[in-house]
């Protein structure tokens, strides 16, 4: 379980997340959805111990999370954070030197799955291929928990599809947990075990995605509209 208990996070005067209490199952894929500025990125960073809450606690399987948990929690930033002067194979060596759970064989399997040339320099990659490389170095870690902040954002449909395919192929949903923040709700839908909806710094709901179809007869995107309309005022 990832447990948020009365969590508030502020940046100076701006509140990013307010009094959030929620239990997210530790295994399987959880989509984190909601409009811009609703608190998705902050929730992911708090879950990984990359930010500390101003109020409340965040725990992973009963243990309070901290910066040190980066040894077992992998995080993919929405920003470009990879070193441009590396070649892809050098980047993989570098990541392997930083993370004990980094599986180089898996990284190379993913590179060939995505048709990437290990000898190519990061700075000469297209935006789409940089997006692919970021996914490779994150999923190559055999981490218990993967936090992916907007992995599809700004990428073309073909790249988005190859990233979704690689998530299906290389994440072990029985052993690993994944939190993915995204606006591409419909594309991501078949991949999700459950959906967490945020609005205006609050969690509105957490629901099993197949149960949404069963109970409401709509997909996640349709359900989100429904939730937003019903619980719009917070």
């Amino acid at each position: 379980m990832i447990t948020f208990d009365g969590v508030t996070k502020k940046f100076l005067s701006r509140t990013a997340l307010e009094n959030v209490t929620i239990e997210i199952p530790a295994k399987g894929v959880t989509g984190v959805v909601g409009e811009n500025g609703s608190g998705k990125s902050t929730l992911l960073k708090l879950a990984g111990g990359l930010l500390r809450p101003d109020k409340g606690t965040v725990a992973y399987n009963g243990q309070k999370v901290s910066r040190k948990d980066s040894s077992r929690i992998a995080y993919l930033s929405e920003n470009d954070h990879i070193y441009a002067f590396f070649r892809i194979d050098e980047l993989i060596d570098y990541q392997a030197s930083q993370f004990l759970d980094f599986n180089k064989q898996r990284a190379y399997d993913m590179l060939s799955f995505m048709n990437l040339d290990p000898a190519q320099k990061i700075k000469t990659l297209s935006k789409g291929n940089r997006g692919r490389v970021k996914i490779v170095i994150t999923l190559a870690r055999e981490a218990e928990l993967l936090l992916l902040d907007e992995p599809l954002s700004g990428l073309d449909p073909i790249v988005r599809r190859s990233i979704i395919q690689s998530l299906v192929s290389f994440v072990d949903v029985e052993a690993q947990g994944v939190l993915i923040s995204t606006h591409e709700v419909s594309e991501m839908d078949p991949l999700l075990d459950r959906v967490l909806v945020l609005r205006q710094q609050h969690v509105l709901d957490l629901e099993d995605s197949e149960a949404i179809r069963e109970q409401f007869g709509v997909d996640t995107a349709g359900w989100m509209e429904h939730i937003y309309a019903r619980k719009g005022k917070v």
Binding site: G28, V168, S169, E174, P190, L192
Partner: peptide, 14 residues
């Protein structure tokens, strides 16, 4: 399970 999940592009749990 994994192979069919890849074919359909869905979560292996499904």
């Amino acid at each position: 399970v994994r192979a069919l999940a890849v074919d359909f592009g869905v979560n292996p749990n499904t």
